[in-house]
Design a protein around this nucleic acid. Structure first.
Length: 957
DNA sequence: ACGCCATTGATTTTT
DNA sequence: TCAATGGCGT
C-alpha cells in the first residue's frame, strides 16, 4: 500500500505511471518522498521488475540516498526485491554502464581511462603545442599561459560535446575561430581514441552515439526499460535530453521532475527549456502535468518571502513566458505573524559584519533553542572569496567550528605546508633546479619557500631530532644522486609518516569530520603524489630523471593544483557535521535544507555569462535557437540562484552582509540594488523579540547504505584492520606498482575466451586468437596502469591462459556466464561481488573463481584455502539470492598449477554459508563502528604495505 | 541629462 | 572578462 501521507497531487503523481508525466515540484514539496513512493508503487502494485526501471538523479549522493530509501521502504513491508538491477544513478553513471555493457559497439577498448576535470586539463596541457599549431587556434586560446589555454580549450571542447555540434559544420565555417575550434575538437577526439580515454562530457557523447548508431541496441534497451524517472530535469542539457528520449523510446513512460525556478547550471549547458517544453514533445493533451506546490519545509513567512522575490522579476518577454506561474503554499499556517525572515548585518560605515554575525550566533546558542551548530548553514555564491574565508576564520578563532570543504584552504593547512616544506628539504638542489634560466621566477615559489621555513622551524625543535637526522641523510643522498632510489615522491611521503611531526595527524579522531580533517588532507596529499607519478610515468628517482621531476612537480603539477584549488574531504553520510556551522555555495545547497539559513553574497549582481564566440555558436551552430532572450538570462539566473538559496531555510532565514553606501569611484552599495526591495523591510535580529522562542528543527539523518565486497573490504579488514582504516576508510593511495597486473591480465584473457564460448563461437578459440586477446588486454592495461611486466612474466601469464584452454579440451558447453557483477541490497549494507565463471545444467550451477597462482599446499596453507572458501560462499549466496538458481559446487581454479589437478572443489553447505554471511555481517558492523583494533601485525602483508614505516614506529613500544 | 572614463572587485561543476 | 559607481565634461 502506498503511503497515506501523500497529499492529493503527490498521490496523483505516484499513480500516473503510463505516458509522459511532468511534475513541477516546488521547494520542500516532498519530491523525494513522492519519487520513493512512485518506485514503490511501480514495483509492488504494477508488478514492474526493478531492472525495468531507470531513475536518474543529479548527483551520485542523491542516487545512493534514493536507493537506500527505496530499499528501506520495501523492507518496511517485508517485500524482497533486488534493487541492484535498477538503472539508478546520475546520467553520467548510467551512460557509463551502457558503454561498459556494450563496449564492443563503441570506440572504447577494455580498461579505458576515465579522466576527471583536472586529468582532462593536464591531458590537453601535455599536448598543447599540437593545438597551438592549428591555424586560428590563437583566436580561441588567446594570449595566456599554456595551462590557462588548456583550461579555455577544455571549456569549448566540452561545449561542443554537450551541444552535440557537428564537427564538419564547424570546420566549414567562414569564421576562422569556429573553424579552429572544429579542428581542435577533432584532434582532441583523436587523442582520446589513441589513449583509450574518456572525459565526462564524452561519456554522454559516446552513449548517445551508441544508441543512435546501433538501433538494435536502442531497441533492446527500449524493450527492457519500461519506466523512466528523471530528477532535477531543469538542470539537464541538450545531450542529456537526447539520451533520455532515446532511452524512452516509443513507450513514452517518462516522468520528469524538477523546478524551473531552481535551474542553476546554464554554464554547463543546462536549459530550463527542457522542462518548460517537455509537454510539447508529445501529442497534445498526452502529457500529464502535476504541480507539487505545498511546502512542508519552511516557515510560512519564509515561503511568502521567496514568493515575493520571484514576483519582482518579469518572466515574460515578447509574449513568451519563461516560468511556470506558480505560488508555493505553506503547509502550516499556524505560525503566521511570527518573523521567519530577518537580517544580521554589519552597519554602514563600520567594519563590524564578522562581529555582528558572531554575536547573532552566540545569542541563538545562549538564549535561543539552538542545540547544535550544525543547524546553521551559511550560503554564498562562492566560499572561496576572501571575505567569506575571513568570516570563517573569525568564527573559528572564537571557537565556532566551520565546515567549509570547498573554501580552498587545502594549501593553507599546517599539515600540508609541512609536507611541502619537508619535500623541499629533502631535495636541496631545488632552488637551482627550479630555474629554467637566470631570471626565472614563479609566484608560487614564495609560498613554497614559506612552507620550507615552517618546516625547518619545526625541525629545530628537540622532539624532531630523529627526523632531522633522517632528513639530512636523505637530502645529502638526493643532492648528488648516484644510483636509483626505490621510491619516488609517494614513497617518501609514507616514510615521512614514521616521524611524530606527521604521524600525530594519523592519530586524530575520525568520528567527527572536523577533527579528522588533517588525516583526510594527508590522504588527499598521498593521492596527489601517486597521481603525479602516474601522469609522469615514474616510480623511482634516478640520477637522470630527478632534476626534471622536481621541476615538473613544483613548477607545473603542484602549481596547477594550487591555482585550481583543492576541495577538502566531504562526507556523503553527514552533510551537516555535528558541532560545526556549514559554509556552502548555493549550488552545493541544492536539494538540501537547514533549520537556520544565513544567506550572504548580497553584494553580488547579475552578470553576463557568455562570450562573442558563444553567441556565434548559439546563433548558427546549435540545434535549437536560443530560448530565453540572451539579454534577460543573467537576471533570470540571478533570481533563480537566490530563490534556491532562500528556499533552503526551514525555521529561520537570515540575510547578512556588511552594509555599505557607495561613496566615490569604484565603491558600491551593499546590498546591491537587486536585493534592496527584499532586504530593506527586514528587521534586524536584535529587534525581533521572539527569535529566541523559535523552535529549531534538528538536522535529519542521512541514511546511505555503503557497499562492501569480500575481496576489497572484508578481506582487507581481516588481514589488517589498520590497513583497512588507511586504505579504505581514509582512502590513502598506495604507491603504485604492477602487483595486480599479472592476475588481471590472466583474468581478462580468460574472460574473453569465456565470452566467446557464450556467444557460441567455440571454434574461434584458437592459439592465434588467444594471443590476440592477450596482447590487446596487455596493451590496454599498461596504457591504463602505466606499469609494465617483464617479458618473462608476460610469457608466464600467457602460458597460464593457454594451459587452462588446453585442459578444457574444447568443451565449453556448460558455461553460463562469465565475470558477472552481482550486488545485493541488504538491510544494513550493499553486498557486492564479481563472479568469474558460472557453469551448470538445468537449475543448479557451479561457480568458479580463478586464482593466477600455484595451488597451495592444502594442509600447510589451509588458512588461505579456508579464506577462499568463504569468498566462494559469499558468491554462492549472491547467486542464489539474485538468480534463484541453486548452487551445487564451488571451485577454485589455480591457473598457475602445472602438474596436479588445478581445481579445489567445495560442495555447497547451506549452514556454512549462513555462518560465513553472519561473519561478514559482524565485520561490516565493526567497520561501521570504526573498530580498527588489531591483535598483532600480519608479518607477511606488512612487508608490502606503505604504512609499515608508521606501524614500525607505532608498535615499537 | 547624458556620455565617457577610471576605478574596483568578483563564479558556479557532473564520474 | 563586466557591472556599478561617481567624477568630469558638454
Amino acid at each position: 500500500m502506498i503511503s497515506q501521507k501523500l497529499n492529493k497531487n503527490q498521490k496523483r503523481a505516484v499513480k500516473t505511471t503510463d505516458g509522459p508525466l511532468l511534475i513541477i515540484a516546488g521547494p520542500g514539496s516532498g519530491k523525494t518522498f513522492t519519487l520513493v513512493e512512485r518506485i514503490y508503487y511501480l514495483i509492488t502494485e504494477k508488478n514492474v521488475e526493478p531492472e525495468n526501471i531507470l531513475v536518474s538523479t543529479f548527483t551520485e549522493k542523491t542516487a545512493k540516498e534514493l536507493m537506500t530509501r527505496v530499499s528501506n521502504r520495501l523492507n518496511e513491508d517485508n517485500i524482497q526485491f533486488n534493487l541492484n538491477e535498477m538503472y539508478l544513478g546520475t546520467i553520467h553513471s548510467i551512460c557509463l554502464r551502457l558503454l561498459e555493457e556494450n563496449r564492443e559497439f563503441t570506440r572504447l577498448k577494455k580498461n579505458f581511462i576515465l579522466m576527471d576535470q583536472f586529468d582532462q586539463q593536464y591531458f590537453i596541457y601535455q599536448k598543447s603545442y599540437q593545438y597551438e599549431k592549428i591555424t586560428g587556434s590563437e583566436l580561441i586560446l588567446g594570449n595566456r599561459s599554456r595551462w590557462k589555454k588548456a583550461e579555455e580549450l577544455l571549456k569549448w571542447i566540452n561545449k561542443v560535446s554537450e551541444e552535440m555540434l557537428s564537427v564538419d559544420e564547424l570546420k566549414k565555417s567562414p569564421e576562422p575561430q569556429i573553424q579552429a575550434l572544429g579542428q581542435c575538437y577533432e584532434l582532441y577526439q583523436q587523442h582520446l581514441e589513441e589513449e583509450n580515454a574518456l572525459d565526462f562530457s564524452t561519456i554522454q557523447l559516446e552513449a548517445s552515439r551508441l544508441l543512435r548508431n546501433h538501433p538494435e541496441i536502442q531497441e533492446s534497451l527500449n524493450e527492457k526499460i519500461d519506466y523512466l524517472m528523471i530528477d532535477e530535469y531543469q538542470d539537464t542539457n541538450t545531450i542529456q535530453e537526447e539520451i533520455i528520449f532515446l532511452l524512452a523510446g516509443k513507450k513514452n513512460n517518462v516522468c520528469v521532475v524538477g523546478d524551473d525556478d531552481q535551474g542553476l547550471y546554464r554554464f554547463r549547458g543546462a536549459t530550463i527549456r527542457n522542462i518548460l517544453e517537455f509537454p510539447k514533445k508529445f501529442e497534445e493533451e498526452k502529457c500529464t502535468q502535476i504541480e507539487l506546490s505545498v511546502n512542508y519545509r519552511s516557515h510560512p513567512s519564509i515561503v511568502q518571502f521567496y514568493n515575493q522575490w520571484m514576483e519582482q522579476q518579469s518572466w515574460h518577454y515578447e509574449n513568451k513566458s519563461f516560468r511556470f506561474d506558480k505560488k508555493i503554499v505553506p503547509a502550516e499556517r499556524s505560525y503566521y505573524g511570527r518573523e521567519g525572515v530577518i537580517k544580521a548585518s554589519g552597519s554602514d560605515g563600520r567594519n563590524d559584519w564578522y562581529e555582528e554575525v558572531y554575536q547573532f550566533l552566540i545569542s541563538m546558542r545562549e538564549k535561543g533553542e539552538l542545540k547544535d551548530w550544525n543547524q546553521i548553514a551559511f550560503l554564498f555564491r562562492s566560499v572561496r572569496n576572501p571575505k567569506v574565508v575571513g568570516l570563517a576564520n573569525y568564527l573559528e578563532e572564537r571557537e565556532i567550528s566551520v565546515y567549509s570543504p570547498r573554501s580552498n584552504m587545502f594549501f593553507d593547512r599546517e599539515e600540508i605546508r609541512l609536507l611541502i616544506g619537508a619535500i623541499m628539504f629533502l631535495f636541496p638542489q631545488l632552488p637551482e633546479v627550479r630555474k629554467w634560466n637566470e631570471n626565472a621566477y614563479l609566484e608560487e615559489w614564495e609560498m613554497y619557500d614559506q612552507c620550507f621555513l615552517e618546516f625547518t622551524n619545526e625541525l629545530r625543535k628537540p622532539e624532531n631530532a630523529k627526523l632531522l637526522k633522517w632528513a639530512r641523510k636523505k637530502a645529502k643522498a638526493h643532492y648528488n644522486l648516484a644510483e636509483n632510489t626505490d621510491y619516488a615522491f609517494a614513497g617518501l611521503f609514507y616514510q615521512l609518516l614514521q616521524f611524530n611531526l606527521f604521524n600525530k595527524y594519523l592519530e586524530s579522531e575520525t568520528s567527527y569530520i572536523i577533527d579528522s580533517r588533517p588525516v583526510r588532507n594527508l590522504s588527499l596529499f598521498s593521492q596527489l603524489l601517486t597521481k603525479f607519478e602516474y601522469l609522469h610515468r615514474v616510480s623511482v628517482f634516478t640520477p637522470k630523471n630527478i632534476n626534471q621531476l622536481l621541476r615538473a612537480f613544483f613548477n607545473q603539477y603542484l602549481r596547477f593544483l594550487i591555482n585550481g584549488g583543492i576541495n577538502e574531504y566531504e562526507d556523503d553520510s553527514e552533510y551537516a557535521p555535528s558541532g560545526c556551522v556549514s559554509f556552502l555555495t548555493i549550488h552545493q545547497s541544492k536539494g538540501l535544507e537547514f533549520p537556520i539559513v544565513i544567506v550572504g553574497s548580497l553584494e553580488s549582481t547579475p552578470r553576463k555569462q557568455y562570450s562573442d564566440l558563444d553567441e556565434v555558436l548559439q546563433e548558427n551552430y546549435y540545434h535549437k535557437n536560443p530560448f530565453e532572450p540572451l539579454n534577460r538570462t543573467k537576471y533570470y539566473d540571478f533570481w533563480r540562484l537566490y530563490y534556491t538559496a532562500f528556499s533552503r531555510a526551514q525555521n529561520l532565514l537570515v540575510l547578512s552582509c556588511q552594509e555599505n553606501k557607495a561613496s566615490g569611484q569604484g565603491t558600491r552599495n551593499v546590498p546591491s540594488k537587486s536585493f534592496v526591495d527584499s532586504y530593506t523591510p527586514l528587521k534586524s535580529w536584535r529587534h525581533v523579540d521572539d527569535i529566541y522562542k523559535l523552535e529549531i528543527d534538528e538536522i535529519k539523518d542521512v541514511n546511505i547504505k555503503k557497499e562492501y565486497s569480500f575481496t576489497s573490504h572484508i578481506n582487507v579488514f581481516e588481514t589488517c584492520a589498520l590497513q583497512y582504516k588507511f586504505y579504505k576508510e581514509l582512502d590513502f593511495s598506495p604507491v603504485r606498482h604492477g602487483a595486480t597486473l599479472f592476475g588481471t591480465l590472466v583474468h581478462q584473457t580468460i574472460e574473453d575466451i569465456h565470452k566467446a564460448a557464450i556467444r557460441g563461437e567455440e571454434g574461434k578459440i584458437t592459439k592465434e586468437r588467444i594471443d590476440e586477446w592477450f596482447y590487446a588486454n596487455y596493451n590496454n592495461l599498461i596504457k591504463k596502469e602505466r606499469v609494465h611486466l617483464a617479458p618473462t612474466t608476460k610469457e608466464a601469464a600467457l602460458s597460464q591462459v593457454k594451459h587452462y584452454v588446453e585442459r578444457q579440451n574444447n568443451d565449453w558447453s556448460h558455461i553460463k556466464d562469465a565475470e558477472v557483477d552481482v550486488s545485493l541490497v541488504k538491510d544494513e549494507y550493499v553486498l557486492k561481488g564479481t563472479i568469474d565463471l558460472i557453469k551448470g545444467q538445468d537449475n543448479t550451477v557451479d561457480i568458479i573463481d580463478f586464482k593466477s597462482e600455484k595451488k597451495p599446499d592444502l594442509v600447510k596453507e589451509q588458512d588461505t584455502i579456508y579464506h577462499y572458501k568463504r569468498q566462494l560462499e559469499i558468491y554462492a549466496h549472491l547467486v542464489e539470492e539474485r538468480t534463484g538458481q541453486q548452487v551445487n559446487n564451488m571451485h577454485l581454479y589455480y591457473t598457475g598449477e602445472d602438474n596436479s589437478n588445478p581445481y579445489v572443489t567445495f560442495p555447497k553447505d547451506g549452514k556454512s554459508i549462513d555462518h560465513t554471511i553472519s561473519k561478514f555481517d559482524r565485520i561490516v558492523e565493526r567497520i561501521e563502528e570504526k573498530d580498527y583494533s588489531i591483535e598483532k601485525r600480519p608479518v607477511k602483508q606488512c612487508q608490502n604495505c606503505d604504512m609499515r614505516f608508521y606501524c614500525n614506529q607505532k608498535f615499537k613500544e
